[in-house]
Simulated scan of single mutants.
Amino acid sequence: MSWHTIEKHALRLKPHKAGTSISDLHNLRTVLSNQYLQDQVRRVLSAAWLAWMLAIATQQLIRFFPSPDAELNGDAFWTYLPNARRFLAAPWSYLTTDALNFYVAPLSYIWPAIWGANPVITQVANSILYLLCVL
């Protein structure tokens, strides 16, 4: 066995710098474009899925959304909206001295108070919050 034969086999095992040939650049470009296309397809399919889910959720909201002149829920009419109005009128005195503050869940009147104790706007805000939860 000659030295050249041993060296030839040893050089096969030796790590070497990858040369940048035209075929290597073409292969790299192909791999990157395939990955880019896969990412684009994944994004489009995800967006389509979310759009479909939001469309279904919006249909359900429209189906069950009460009309603006409909009678309010008893809890909203007798508890949450009056407490929200009292909170808006005098926040500190309501929180510290009014006994009605303690008859409801802690700060449950804040959500309707954020929307001005308006039942229609509160229902719209609840619907938007629901759609955001779907996302």
Rank of each mutant, 00 (worst) to 15 (best):
F65C: 01
S46N: 04
P119A: 08
L135K: 14
S23D: 14
F77Y: 08
P119C: 08
L107A: 09
F65R: 00
Y130W: 07
S21R: 15
V120E: 03
M53Q: 12
S67E: 04
Y109V: 09
F102T: 02
T58C: 07
I114Y: 01
L37C: 04
R86N: 08
N101V: 07
G74D: 05
M53I: 12
V41S: 10
Y130G: 11
P66G: 03
T122Y: 07
G19Q: 14
P68H: 03
L37G: 10
A51E: 13
I114E: 03
A113M: 06
T96P: 13
P15T: 10
A70G: 05
V44K: 02
A113L: 01
H4A: 09
A105C: 05
Y94Q: 00
N118L: 09
P91L: 10
R85Y: 05
A125V: 06
R12M: 10
S21K: 14
L61C: 04
V124W: 12
S23R: 14
A99T: 11
D75G: 04
K17N: 11
F102S: 06
T97V: 01
L100E: 02
A84W: 01
R12E: 10
F65M: 06
A18W: 15
A99V: 15
W92A: 00
K17H: 13
W52E: 10
R86D: 02
W78G: 03
T58N: 03
I22Q: 15
L45P: 02
T97W: 09
I56T: 15
T20S: 11
W52G: 15
N118T: 04
P91S: 02
K17G: 10
I22M: 14
A48W: 12
F87S: 03
Q60H: 06
L95T: 07
V104S: 05
Y94D: 00
W52T: 06
P15L: 06
R43Y: 01
L95S: 04
S127H: 07
M53D: 14
L54T: 01
T122D: 10
S127A: 05
A89I: 05
I114M: 05
R12G: 07
H9N: 06
R29C: 10
L95A: 06
H16G: 12
R43T: 11
L25Q: 06
N126F: 13
V134S: 12
R63V: 05
W78D: 04
K8S: 10
A48V: 12
N83E: 08
V134K: 02
W78S: 06
D75V: 12
Q40F: 13
R86K: 06
A51T: 03
L54G: 08
L88M: 08
D69P: 05
K14W: 07
P112C: 14
R86M: 11
L37E: 12
T79S: 12
T5K: 13
S93I: 11
R85F: 07
L132C: 11
I6C: 15
L13A: 06
H9C: 04
E71S: 10
Y36E: 15
I6L: 14
T58Q: 08
P91N: 00
N118A: 08
